[in-house]
Design a protein around this nucleic acid. Sequence first.
DNA 1: TTGAAAGCGCTAACAG
DNA 2: CTGTTAGCGCTTTCAA
Lengths: 333, 333
Amino acid sequence: MATIKDVAKHAGLSVTTVSRYLNHHPYITEEKKEKIKLAMKELDYSPNSAATQLRSNKSFTIGIIVSRITNPFFAYLIDSIEKVVKKTNYHTLIMQTYDNKDEELRLLNMLKQKHIDGIIMASIENDLSVIEQYEQYGPIVITGDISLSSSTLPVVGTNQENATYRAILYLIEKGYTDIAYCTGGEFKETKHGSSRNRGYIKALQDNNIPLNFDRIYKNIHTINDGEEIAKSILNLDKEKWPRAIFAGSDEVAAGMIKTFMQNEVNIPEEIAIMGYDNQPLSEMLSIPLSTVSQPIDKIGIETTNLLMSYLNEREYIVNKEALELDIIVRSST
Amino acid sequence: MATIKDVAKHAGLSVTTVSRYLNHHPYITEEKKEKIKLAMKELDYSPNSAATQLRSNKSFTIGIIVSRITNPFFAYLIDSIEKVVKKTNYHTLIMQTYDNKDEELRLLNMLKQKHIDGIIMASIENDLSVIEQYEQYGPIVITGDISLSSSTLPVVGTNQENATYRAILYLIEKGYTDIAYCTGGEFKETKHGSSRNRGYIKALQDNNIPLNFDRIYKNIHTINDGEEIAKSILNLDKEKWPRAIFAGSDEVAAGMIKTFMQNEVNIPEEIAIMGYDNQPLSEMLSIPLSTVSQPIDKIGIETTNLLMSYLNEREYIVNKEALELDIIVRSST
DNA sequence: TTGAAAGCGCTAACAG
DNA sequence: CTGTTAGCGCTTTCAA
């Protein structure tokens, strides 16, 4: 491959001038610009990105951490982020943790190695205190729930406690009181639990419904997890069934609906199901799904703008109004 | 940030020795290894990846080109590829073209800039002759249909002409003769058209069914495209409806089913619909979808192994048996 | 408006 | 087994 030196020689100029041309500096005569352009074309020149990075100490790459790209929520979020990034001179590096702590650390380390200039974290495995350690190597923006804001890290968050509260309240007002609950994480009845858990607990409390731990399903993520839960419910005597299930994600809800349908259970008459995310598939299921919609696109845009503002040392005020969650009612509840 | 020089100084050794340690060379005493390890820890050292790349002339990154990450087919393919890559010392760079030629060229250029060492192309916009130009800068492996093999580029392909032929044949044998057809690209009645197009044309020919261009829908990709087609059919007099639609993807099929259901059209009695990809959602739709299943996981594994073999100058024989497509019959046909 | 030269952090001859 | 040193391709003073 031709280098900047070759171009300079070919054009009868110094590397400095060629470098200036490359970086759109002023003070180059049109005549020399033409010469350089020609030399570059003739030598099929492309700047070596490693050299540029080494010298400028910037990679012009931002990392996006998600747990898994096959989750449509993350796929759409990435898509939204990329569309913003594409307008800048930055690239995007997508990184999956598969819910693994060490994998997340490996990715955070890329910041230290200057492989990436900044990070958007859409999923979080390690303690915030651990993640904060990496902030010294470059800006990190978290996107998810506003309750993560307790840390020093900037957060573009939605109010999932409130959304979950409203979703459960809706179910209660519909007449369902025995409401099962799925979470992607753990479930501890403390103030420090996940925000969605808090919304669930509070909605029950406010309506004098006792919390029943037999109704809590933990570490639930996939379609398959949903199928398993449905199966376990089918194994119960009918009078022991919950009357409604808050699935935590549309995928989990889809898995449940599939299994219940196969076993000729009527939804919502025999059991109601509520999803989360309002993915495209949710309105196409055999039983269109009631769910919580997240403004993925806007979340992506606000998060990226915020990170870019740190990278460019500018100010950016996040438009919080854009980040409201909605309860979408369809026929599964 | 600490550099290798700082570590060397701190450990009372030369940079060479530290570099050797970093690269797992033999001939270093345990004692010095310990010293280096300690110095690295104390200085919070991480090698600068740009410097390593510049010096070694390798980025240890492979690019994956897809048209859009929100298409679950690509999301799952990427997932499969990443799982293989993760076992090596390479990273992955995911690149979306959004079906845009120039964008694709921009990405191919990253090979020239040494930003990536090799590319897996899961979607193709430019002519193969254009893409071949970039092979000189690093290995490019194409994954898709075997008919792409006409080029000099290595291809890990499935036989989509045959799968489409079998799918259309299945519809014909079911009694449907007026079969509409959607393609993501163009439709020209030539030998050089896309392989799926050829499968469709051949199946009709072999059964003496005339080709009707009014039944061909071009550049169809998304759920929304499916909805639009369904709407346009609903606008036709009922006797002018096609009896079946080969949708080209499960997403398009899902969009159609949604719209037809909303308009109380019975599927498959009034119109049959066939998808492509066998995505998880296909068995969960209100009308479970007949479709063509692709062994995404195996495609990803074989493609990655092949690219890696070029990168490491080894031999690799693709397991073609693993790449068979199947017709999945559910209730939409 | 242009060029010479130093050096970013690392690796790999080469010499010992 | 270890160290000296010359670059990899580029940007950026500094001087002209």
